[in-house]
């Protein structure tokens, strides 16, 4: 899985948002989506094409949690650490995910497959504790059943890769 974005793609993204300064956050989001990070070259191109200084783009890139300057893993495991999940054992859940993936939260596995990110609230407090693996949400997760969940996902992922 590439973590790059071509000049043509960046150009297309800039055009999609009408080169408008007020949509630079959207442009960065689209680049982040394509490349799983914000490559310097893409920032420079946006800066040139939209006419906003690099300092501003770096300010945005480091201010918002959606952005990263280093490539994120192919799959995101986001553990909700909002208040409702906190009282339903989210700290123990984060710990269990760290153990299973062999990384600390905020990090990416060496093979670039998984990133583990705590998020502040996924808005599914009725199902606490929750986590998402990519776009799929899982409710009532505990440190005791999360390993099976992750293992199942990793297995599917391996299978998908083979075929």
């Amino acid at each position: 899985m590439p973590v790059e974005v071509s000049e043509a793609q960046v150009h297309e993204i800039v055009e999609r948002w009408q080169r408008s300064e007020s949509f630079v956050i959207e442009m960065l989001q689209d680049v982040q989506h394509e490349a799983r990070h914000l490559p310097r070259s893409a920032l420079e191109q946006i800066s040139r094409e939209v006419g906003v200084p690099m300092t501003r783009l770096y300010h945005l890139a480091t201010f918002f949690k959606a952005f990263s300057l280093e490539p994120r893993g192919e799959h995101m495991v986001q553990v909700c650490v909002g208040s409702a999940c906190h009282v339903k054992g989210a700290p123990r859940l984060v710990h269990a995910c760290e153990r299973h993936l062999g990384i600390k939260s905020g990090e990416t596995t060496a093979d670039g497959k998984f990133s583990l990110e705590p998020v502040r609230c996924l808005g599914c407090c009725g199902l606490a504790a929750v986590l998402t693996i990519d776009d799929e949400l899982h409710g009532h997760v505990t440190s005791a059943n999360v390993e099976r969940l992750l293992k199942r996902f990793q297995k599917q992922e391996k299978k998908a890769e083979v075929t």
């Binding site: 949509f23 956050i25 945005l60 918002f64 959606a66």
Partner: peptide, 25 residues
């Protein structure tokens, strides 16, 4: 419609408007 990019403080009125303009919140 604009999308936020993950910052709690952007819910605050002036920060939200700054973010709508394409600035940090």
């Amino acid at each position: 419609v604009h999308r936020g990019a993950g910052a709690f403080v952007c819910g605050e009125s002036t920060a939200l408007m700054a973010s709508l303009e394409g600035n940090v919140g």
